[in-house]
Write a protein that binds this DNA or RNA. Structure first.
Length: 574
DNA sequence: GCCGTTTTCGGCCCGACTGTTTTCAGTCG
């Protein structure tokens, strides 16, 4: 059983307990358990109860639930709860403005079990007849039902950024003296975002809230208060604006950037220091004196911590690191000197070798590896040995074009049995070989792990490309034993790719963090299929930052000659 | 349900907005 399934069941238990109006702290414990399961780099099903209990937040009961789930595929406690409420009612909770109390009432009083039931109950007036409900609630629920059909769920980070930047500009023009920032998951660089959060510090609040709700991209206004507004944009994003006074700017920036887990840990810390932390500042408990608030740095300082970069605020050890001066010096995009993964018109790319070199130069890169597909990928016009070598010759002939040093490589398919798609002589004569899985995703964990291990053991492989094979919001990673892969890659000198394609971001931040903790080395690659696609290195760099990577962890921060010498094939030749 | 250099019991993060209420419960972030 994978972690995502365990997370789903624990999350459902939390939802069901909320419907029952159970102990809120118990609910939080299950909620936290679900979050831990979703983000945990190891397969929880492979751990015993004692190992599970070593994970902070997992105690006796949750460990037992996870063990039971892993062993039997189900969990009695979960089944007992679903006997009280049918599992279909849980999807009612996804409606904006509909929470557990409402769902429980709708089910108990009206027998509402599904979204369709709810729609019918609104239309025939039964909802407004309930105590505490009125016609406005009824209209709100109907709108939420319609919205849900239009826009399901989360969005890719680059889409979020592309949506929020013009909105930010609009607000800045409306109130030039205000300090306005993007906060929330976008500021943390999360791979997907549920909504867009904006924070403004200003004394001219009405000007800002008016500009926000009147933004041309707004589809409809959800909430409109003095300091807080929410809108649904026409493209499906929800955007939230919060306005605070300038003396609270830093505290609010911290508060609204999150994550929730990071903030809770910070407030715990504040309490233990005899302080109180909220979005207005850090206060001493006795006399309510404000100790900090204008800048984020002073908020962290008041709590005895160094300023923590937003990408690290996920409660993955950053507070301890900030306390002991051990925060990493995170890698920056402009530290990347080269790109090791790009395609051309020889296979499924849109631009020629020369155009790609020009694009790389425009992106500030000093070197570029041309790595087109191998023969198995016939859909992409993959190259056989003869074609690969001829292509390599053309790449060499253009070395130095647009001031960019070129490496002739290949993105070679890892076949289902773990052998490579091109013969050894061909691979040996290239400058760099990326090995990637593009087929037979249905293999089980053992097969896939063996397959990847065999590729890593191959003497001519330098880089493991998009190691997990996931497609964000489309396809889960294939199952594989990440720790075994990391260990083998260390042993054989194979580098792990962080693929910057917006749908891949693979390795993920959590996987890359685990690999980094084991001492793995990385490349951040664009996987560019056109000359403009080098811009995606921005997203790969964000993943690396969220994985705590420094420039020294990433091979393509090295100058060209040093980089070339550090590749596995060079070391094995010398 | 989890957790612990004050604790194995008694705590557990905090505030804004809305609707349906004459003082607050529910929802959200």
């Amino acid at each position: 059983m994978d972690n995502a399934t365990i997370a789903r069941v624990l999350g459902e238990i939390a939802d069901l307990l909320e419907l029952k109006n159970d102990n809120p702290f118990k609910i939080r414990a299950y909620r936290r358990g679900a979050e831990i399961a979703a983000n945990h780099p190891h397969l929880l099903a492979s751990l015993d109860a004692a190992s599970l209990r070593e994970i902070p937040g997992i105690g006796k009961d949750l460990a037992a639930r996870i063990v039971e789930l892993s062993a039997t595929g189900a969990c009695r406690y979960h089944e007992e709860l679903t006997a009280e409420f049918p599992s279909t009612v849980l999807e009612l909770l996804s409606l904006q403005g509909v929470g557990p109390k409402t769902v429980a009432t709708l089910y108990r009083e009206l027998g509402v079990r599904t979204l369709d039931d709810l729609s019918a109950a609104c239309q025939d007036g039964r909802v407004r007849s309930l105590k505490g409900m009125g016609t406005k609630r009824e209209t709100l629920i109907l709108k939420a039902l319609a919205d849900r059909q239009h826009y399901a769920g989360r969005h890719l980070l680059p889409e979020a950024v592309a949506t929020v930047e013009p909105l930010l500009e609009h607000l800045r023009q409306a109130e030039p003296t205000a300090e306005i920032s993007v906060v929330g998951s976008v500021r943390r660089g999360c791979e997907t975002c549920g909504d867009l959060d904006l924070l403004a510090s200003s004394t001219r609040t009405p000007l800002l809230t008016a500009a926000f709700t009147q933004y041309p991209g707004v589809g409809r206004i959800l909430v409109e208060g003095d300091t807080k507004c929410s809108v649904l944009l026409a493209n499906g994003f929800q955007a939230d604006l919060r306005v605070v006074t300038p003396d609270s700017h830093g505290a609010a920036l911290q508060y609204f950037t999150g994550s929730k887990a990071h903030n809770i840990a910070l407030r715990d810390r504040a309490i233990s220091l005899g302080l109180k932390l909220n979005e207005y500042g850090v206060f001493s408990v006795g006399d309510d004196q404000r100790l900090a608030g204008a800048s984020e740095a002073e908020v962290y300082q008041a709590l005895g911590l160094a300023w923590i970069p937003p990408e690290l605020r996920e409660q993955r050890g950053e507070i301890e690191a900030a306390e002991t001066g051990r925060l990493p010096a995170l890698i920056e995009r402009d530290q990347l000197r080269g790109d090791l993964h790009a395609h051309t018109t020889a296979t499924d790319g849109k631009d020629t070798i020369a155009a790609m070199a020009e694009g790389a130069g425009e992106a500030g890169l000093e070197y570029l590896a041309i790595t087109d597909h191998s023969q198995t990928l016939s859909m992409a016009n993959g190259l056989d040995e003869r074609e690969a070598l001829a292509h390599a010759k053309r790449v060499k002939a253009l070395d130095g074009h647009a001031g960019v040093r070129l490496l002739a490589g290949i993105e070679c398919d890892i076949l289902p049995d773990g052998t490579l798609d091109l013969d050894d002589d061909c691979l040996a004569s290239l400058d760099i070989v990326i090995a990637s899985v593009h087929t037979a995703f249905g293999q089980d964990q053992q097969q896939m792990t063996d397959r990847l291990l065999r590729a890593i053991e191959h003497p001519h492989v330098d880089v493991l490309g998009h190691p997990s094979g996931r497609r964000l919001l489309e396809r889960e990673p294939y199952p594989f034993d990440l720790e075994a892969i990391v260990e083998a890659s260390l042993h054989h000198g194979v580098v792990l790719e962080i693929n910057s394609q917006v749908h891949r971001l693979d390795l993920s931040d959590a996987h890359a963090k685990l690999a980094r903790d084991r001492g793995a080395r990385f490349v951040i690659s664009s996987d560019a299929h056109s000359r403009r696609a080098f811009a995606t290195l921005r997203w790969g760099t964000l993943v690396a930052r969220r994985a705590w990577l420094e420039a020294a962890d990433v091979l393509n921060t090295l100058p060209f000659e040093t980089f070339k010498a550090s590749l596995r094939r060079q070391r094995s030749r010398s």
